[in-house]
Design a protein around this nucleic acid. Structure first.
Lengths: 361, 361
DNA sequence: GTCATCGTTGCATCCGTATGCAACGGTCAA
DNA sequence: TTGACCGTTGCATACGGATGCAACGATGAC
């Protein structure tokens, strides 16, 4: 590497619309209009200007347009649980989809190390047009209202009790009931539930629906507990704790990563065979669940639809300030694999996406 | 949920510095200065203004400051491989760290579905102050130069042949040699290499160094191949392909996720015992590698230091436009686990971070 | 030929903050 | 008492584009 190079920070001032206009002998407004679809300008002049822009490497300054139009074309994505593999996938698809809708994604990480308030303040300062919250955790309802006030906002995979914010989730109730039914169908009787973060809507909905359906089916709920968070380690220790108390013949974990941790503990520490001694099911259908070692029966989250609906809602809200608050629940699908049924054909890697159920309140 | 609510898009125009100034009977510049550390204003007036801002919920408009100062305080993070668990971790820490340095992260996803050129154009349009590229893939050198021209830029975990951009990587050569040494120490003789994306610096460096060290140690390289990408599935099929040709007694996978896929294939399909029949090592030290099932021997990436160095370089470049291009290589550490040594104490979950080696060219 | 109309262009101004410069009041030394 | 000097404040303008409005030329109808 040659020694004396310098980093590229010395910013050679970029060419502006005025510069271009002067060079071409037209007005600055003409340049602006050339870049604004549907504005009053002749095709010829527009072409001339666009061509010149190419040559002179001119690009409208997005910051300046933001100031003028009061539109940032930026969507803030509030995230907290990047360690759960479900989220990176979701975020990736979401940000791509937002991009196609003309919105760049500004990420706001809410983690133990970071200051929540500061993050929310930043959301407002940066004047994001839209906010997508993908965060099972700590943002309180009121803070959220304040941060999203006056802009498009969607809560994904989470609801807040206060309501008032558009929500897109998968159908946790249906999912949990489906798992319960499945346990019933494969002849299990004594079942348990292991949840993640206690006070989140995902957890309470799945837990409540599961327990209720278990009762309806006349099965025994040996235990229902919370592992504390959504992680492999939590699932691992949760399963050990559970198994120390009693021995169910099936466990429903609130999500896949918990289930995977649980499976390891059940096999390696408790010495149980899955599914012969104990059946295990999860929720999400993350790609790791397909791995041969786990081959995890699970209720899928329709990620593509979650994303599509979210972006759709954002778009509508941006187009129409009076767009009503909606609540969308999307159905997933049960994928039966080795962790509940031994004779499942191996190495099947399904990737379909089910149809939606939509409710507008 | 109550029916007729409307989404929060109707933007009530926020109060501006001028409004506040008028209300208080001071000048707009005073308000501006109250929010600018180190500017010429008396402590009393500043306090008065800050207090009033609180009450009236005034906040400086970041967009407008950007326009004035020509500083966006935004760092663009160019990402491509979110499916490799190593990256979410890295990104999370990076964005938090950048935040502490006063930079918000704007994410630019480069994936199969997205248009690279468009993304790079956006980097310039949004006037990001800094660019961090964490992408093993497809951005060509020249495009990168163009996109980062005139701003702070760092390439993380990747080098480009052309040079000219500050680079922060872990010491791939040292890591690969360390793995080779380890194989030698545990008495293996016939070893193989399985890489990920062929034409990336991480792959070529690890491969080259490994092969060379193997030769130096007088061991046999049975095979060296590329699995095509860095994924579980690629590792899985790569291992099968490899094992069909010949039977090494140790395999070095270019990263952990590949190694984990490989382990599954070796055990479940080939019926081999790990490490008795075949030892397996990876690279990165992702948390999944600690899982009992894998307990993967690996050379760690010093994530915290990668992040710290990256942010440090960014900061310096921003402070001094003539800051030279640097190349930093950070040492990781070998973690020996079950996948190479059976009698390793179980359930050890190490989380130390090694010291650095720094080279400035 | 005259005038209304339409499409196109430029002019002027605004978006909200930052900042150089001048003005102002007070302090202190001569 | 006067003048130099410093800290503080306001004024005016710049940042780069967007846009309402007026001006202008061309067209067509009467």
């Amino acid at each position: 590497m040659s020694g004396a190079e310098t980093a590229g920070t010395k910013r050679t001032k970029p060419i502006t619309a005025r510069d271009l206009a002067r060079l071409m002998g037209v007005s600055q407004s003409a340049v602006s209009r050339a870049f604004t679809p549907g504005s009053s300008i002749s095709p010829e002049l527009r072409q001339r200007i666009l061509r010149a822009s190419q040559e002179l490497d001119y690009q409208p300054n997005a910051i300046a347009s933001m100031l003028s139009t009061r539109r940032s074309n930026i969507a803030g994505i509030v995230v907290s649980e990047l360690h759960n593999p479900f989220y990176p996938t979701l975020i990736e698809k979401l940000s791509r989809s937002l991009q196609q809708a003309g919105l760049q994604s500004l990420m706001f990480n809410i983690t133990r190390g970071s200051n929540v308030e500061e993050q929310l303040v930043a959301l407002r300062k940066y004047n994001v047009d839209a906010v997508v919250v993908i965060s099972a955790t700590v943002v309180s309802g009121p803070s959220l209202r304040w941060a999203t006030e006056g802009r498009a906002a969607v809560l994904v995979n989470r609801a807040i009790p206060e309501g008032g914010i558009t929500t897109v989730t998968c159908n946790n109730v249906e999912g949990a009931r489906t798992i319960a039914n499945h346990f019933h169908e494969i002849g299990r009787h004594r079942v348990a539930y292991i949840g993640g973060l206690p006070h989140t809507s995902t957890n309470t909905e799945r837990q409540g629906a599961f327990i209720q359906r278990i009762a309806e089916l006349g099965m025994v709920l040996t235990h229902s507990m919370s592992a504390g968070e959504y992680s492999f380690e939590a699932g691992y220790h949760g399963a050990l704790e559970l198994i120390a108390k009693n021995r169910p013949d099936a466990i429903f974990f609130a999500n896949d990563i918990l289930a995977m941790g649980g499976m390891e503990a059940l096999r390696e520490v408790a010495g149980l065979r899955i599914p012969e001694d104990i059946a295990v099911a999860g929720f999400d259908d993350i790609s790791m669940g397909h791995w041969p070692r786990f081959s995890l029966t699970t209720y899928s989250q329709p990620v593509d639809q979650l994303v599509a609906t979210t972006v759709d809602q954002i778009t509508r809200q941006l187009a129409n300030p009076d767009h009503p608050v909606t609540t969308t629940q999307l159905s997933g699908e049960l994928f039966v694999r080795h962790s509940t049924v031994a004779e499942t054909p191996p190495e099947k890697v399904p990737r379909t996406h089910p149809q939606a159920t939509k409710t507008v309140s």
